[in-house]
């Protein structure tokens, strides 16, 4: 049952992408439907549905947070880059995440790469190694906030992190 549901959701999502890529051209919709069904079947075989379902509200909250933080991240790097003294204090930091394996952890790592001052370097189990532009920034706080938003996307409960310098 879960497989059928995942298949339908994925097929619908792929069809939306096809519709956008062909710019709504009606002559391509028939071929698109066939290809979408094949791709959805492949996707369900290669990546079996996990227990983490996506939540629309969580996704909206995440998108808003992501855009806001992206702007802050870009302006932060521009500010550092354009100031004559080049204010940087780079270094590595290791954080622990309590997000479950798979999609949630992957999304957190990729999100942190685009957030202010952090770049995910290595993801090993629950331990995520970050490269920070400025270790004086409240990195741990930012990671926790991003983690809460990611947890919201997958409908997970409160997630906490522990920080330890490496």
């Amino acid at each position: 049952m879960a497989l059928l549901r995942a298949f339908c959701v994925r097929a619908a999502a792929f069809f939306l992408v096809w519709w956008v890529l062909t710019e709504g051209d009606s002559s391509g919709l028939g071929a698109g439907a066939v290809i979408v069904l094949i791709v959805a079947w492949f996707s369900c075989t290669l990546y079996p549905p996990s227990s983490h379902a996506l939540r629309p509200v969580g996704m909206l909250v995440f998108t808003g947070y992501f855009i806001l933080r992206s702007v802050i991240a870009g302006l932060d790097v521009v500010r550092r880059l354009l100031s004559p003294s080049l204010p940087l204090n780079p270094g590595y930091l290791r954080v622990k995440t309590s997000l479950p394996e798979g999609g949630p952890r992957w999304l957190l790592a990729n999100t942190l790469s685009l957030m202010p001052g952090t770049l995910s370097v290595r993801l090993q189990g629950t331990s995520l190694e970050l490269h920070c532009l400025d270790l004086d920034l409240p990195i741990d706080q930012d990671v926790r906030a991003a983690e809460r938003k990611v947890a919201g996307v997958f409908g997970l409960g409160e997630a906490g992190t522990e920080e330890s310098a490496s």
Binding site: A73, S113, L114, P116, G117, L119, H131, L133
Partner: peptide, 14 residues
């Protein structure tokens, strides 16, 4: 690594 910080974040915004 600092160069990657600059490229990913600023290009994302651009």
């Amino acid at each position: 690594l600092c160069r990657i910080h600059a490229l990913t974040k600023i290009d994302n915004l651009g």
